[in-house]
Structures are given as structure tokens and as C-alpha cells.
Design a protein around this nucleic acid. Structure first.
Lengths: 224, 224
DNA sequence: CCCTGTGAACCTGTTCACAGCG
DNA sequence: CGCTGTGAACAGGTTCACAGGG
């Protein structure tokens, strides 16, 4: 396909893409999926931007990093753009994921419907507590963390989620990296030390609330 | 206190602070709390930076936006800096918070220990399902969402958490804004439309995984 | 004419490098 | 001497403004 080549080209050209732009790609995709559900066939950069509180130029520039997806005088066709974005983000294929920690949060993730539709399949859940091992949440049965290594290898898992207590997080991260995982979603409020080829997506709920607290108390931040 | 005045001055001077800097403040605080727990009394910008994968200059500049907290030749004293950061972030006082939605995620939040220690007190949990209303999770009993308005007013709630299905999120956001909430932590994968004086902290788990997917597949993003 | 794609101008945020203090 | 605080230099991202295509 031509557009695939176009994308590959950009990557090959080593034209690095600003990470804020990549983050916005997820927002675009989410909105486009809403629009598709509502039967909307095309959208202009202006309308897409307005809904997401961004500028039209920014939307166009972000998308243009990856190819020429729009049509002059028309805008972007919703369905094809969805396909493109999924391809760019890598969610047009299925990623196998493991979740480590079956506490309240881990269980919430195991039962969360949102992952499957985005191309993520949870192939294993792990915990050290004897009570939790053997229990089934969503469609996954919790195993003992000792079996983590084996599952990582047999399923060629590239993404892992850490939902264990803070004290155990680094140790689990080490196991995941050891087992070949390249991306970690970390819910433990600590900074993980990982090799440079492993990306960590930190999700610190208390820190996020803190940020709200700051903005609400002072208001003295540049708008994002 | 002098440092309080110093901070007020900066704010008054309308010297706006870069939001990435404010986000890092939470990281500094988290690390300093770890250090305090380990009995460490002082830390240099270099060591703090190294642990968090940042540069020493950045740590110094971020902190200097708010005052002169360090000592030449010594570094930063851990305990006083913790106090300063809490004051800056606004978590040296208690914030009352409501959680709307008592599904898996909402319940996980209600039972999460991490909020209390950071100065956030959950004063109400709400759901529309008859099964959930009346049940108790953590220390909070779930009420019907119809009672949300009343609780917002009687407790002067400034922060709210949305953990309801996507379709209901905007409607709940409207109720929260209506009730005087100024900060919303939004777990629903949708963009909320809110008045400009309300800050939304979006937490989209699927989108965060997508970002990992992108980085793992292509690796072509500037390092954050 | 409407709307995209894009170089150029602009602005924000980061890094450098050093003066100054304990 | 070690380490902070900070102006100055640099780089990364965003916005502008317009050329060009349907």
C-alpha cells in the first residue's frame, strides 16, 4: 500500500516526530471513532481541532508528519484516516499484554472492556497472593508471579502492566524487561529504572490529582 | 513565612510557570518522600535528576521558579523542600473529592490508600445502579447520583473523579461543574467540554497503551 | 471558494556555562 | 571547592500565512 510506504519513508528519513504530536494522534483517533459511530464521513481540521480544544494548523501539521491524508477543499475522510492512525500507532495488529498485580486496580483492568477493541489482548494475569491465584477476572485466570517468565516467552509478550504495590514494582519491572517486554504501563507511584530500549508509561493517580490541585489553587500555569 | 511570600510574589508577578515544570514537581515530591522515608537529609540537583532521568539544570530551574530552596555547596534539604512542594502544589491542605461511578475502576479508587496520604479525602461516591447504591467500599458508602448536587454544595467540593461509562461522562461533568467543582479527573475515554475555569486531567488507559504500542513498533519519537 | 500541506516566523522550554555563596 | 541560581544560547514545538489543488 502506498500510504504504508509513505510512513515507512518518514521513519527511514529519520524525521523524528514530536512526542506531543504522537499523543494527540490518540485523541484524533478516539474522536474519529466517535464520528464514525455517528455516521460522519468526513471532517475538517477545523472541526476536529475545535472539539479537542486544539488549533486547525496543529491538527494538519500532526497528520502531515505521517503522510498526506486530507483533500483540499474537503477535509479528511473519517474511515480511511482511522485506518491510517491505527496503522501508525501500531494497533492494527493485536498486542499481547500481561497484567501483574490482581489487587483492586489490576482486577479493574482485567475486566476493562476498552482494551480488546483497541487491539490489546491480555494473555496473563499474575499475583503472589495465594487467595488470588486461580481466581478468574474477565476472561483471565490469575497465576502465580513465578510463572511470569514462562508466559512472557511462550507468548512473545511486548507490553506489560504493573499494578502491584510500590515496593514490588521495580522487581516486577526487572522481570518484565528480562522477559523481553518493551513497553510498561506503570501504575505504581515510583520511577522505574529500565534499559533504554524499554518505554515506561507512568500513570500516577495521586500525582495527577496533585496537578489538578495546583491548577485549582493557583491557576498560574501556561495553558497546555 | 518568608517562602510563602516568595511564592505568592511569583504568582502575583504573573510569572507563568511552564506546565511541564509543574508536572515534574510531583515527581520531585514523590522522590523526596522516598528519600525522607530512607532517612536521607539532603540531596543535590544532580542526584535527584539522575534518579528521575532528568538533568541537574532542569531540576534547579524548576525549583527556582518558586523560590530559592537550595544551599550553595550543599544541595536541598529534604524535609523543608517536601514542605515547600506540598505548599506549592496545594496538598498541604485537605481537598475533598467525590468519585462518580462505582464500577470496577471507581471501586478501586475508593479503596486506594494513596489518596489520603496526599491530602485528598473522598467525601462521596455515586452511582445510578440500584445494586451499588448503599454498598460500602473503603470508608465510603455509595449514594445515588441524584444526591450528587447536594453533597457538592454541603462539602464545598472542588475536585471530582469521573469513572462512569463514556456515554454518561459529559452529563456527569456538567453536574460537577454546575456544583462548583474546579478540577476533574476523567477516566472516560472522551473529551469533556467544560467551562474555562475548570481543569480536566484526562486519564485514558487505552490511549496510554497506544502510545507504548507506537514507541515499541517504531521507536521514532524524540525522547520525552 | 474551501481546505490542506508546508516553509518561515515565532514562542516556549531546555541546556549551557558561569558568577556567587557557603 | 561543591553546588545553587540564573542570564544567555539553543532547540523543540506551535502558529502564521500563503501557495496550490479540487
Amino acid at each position: 500500500m502506498l500510504t504504508q510506504l509513505a510512513i515507512r519513508d518518514d521513519v527511514v528519513k529519520n524525521q523524528l516526530i514530536p512526542s506531543p504530536a504522537v499523543q494527540r494522534l490518540s485523541l484524533y483517533l478516539r474522536r474519529l471513532e466517535e464520528l464514525a459511530r455517528d455516521g460522519v464521513g468526513k471532517i475538517s481540521s477545523r472541526d476536529l481541532a475545535a472539539y479537542l480544544h486544539l488549533t486547525a494548523a496543529q491538527v494538519r501539521k500532526d497528520l502531515a508528519y505521517f503522510g498526506q491524508f486530507g483533500r483540499s477543499g474537503v477535509g479528511y475522510r473519517v474511515e480511511p484516516l482511522i485506518e491510517e492512525l491505527r496503522h501508525i500507532l501500531g494497533t492494527d495488529r493485536t498486542w499481547t499484554v500481561v497484567v501483574v498485580g490482581a489487587g483492586d486496580l489490576g482486577r479493574a483492568l482485567l475486566r476493562y472492556r476498552g482494551f480488546g477493541s483497541k487491539g490489546f489482548e491480555i494473555v496473563g494475569a499474575f499475583d503472589t497472593s495465594a487467595e488470588k491465584v486461580g481466581q478468574k477476572f474477565g476472561s483471565v485466570t490469575v497465576r502465580h508471579t513465578d510463572e511470569l517468565d514462562e508466559v512472557l516467552r511462550t507468548h512473545d509478550v511486548k507490553l506489560g502492566v504493573i499494578a502491584v504495590p510500590t515496593e514490588a514494582a521495580q522487581q516486577i519491572a526487572d522481570k518484565l524487561c528480562q522477559g523481553g517486554v518493551k513497553g510498561i504501563l506503570n501504575f505504581a507511584p515510583t520511577t522505574l529504572q529500565t534499559p533504554p530500549d524499554v518505554t515506561v508509561g507512568p500513570v500516577d493517580l495521586a500525582a495527577t490529582l496533585e496537578q489538578l490541585s495546583f491548577r485549582v489553587s493557583s491557576g498560574s500555569v501556561r495553558s497546555p
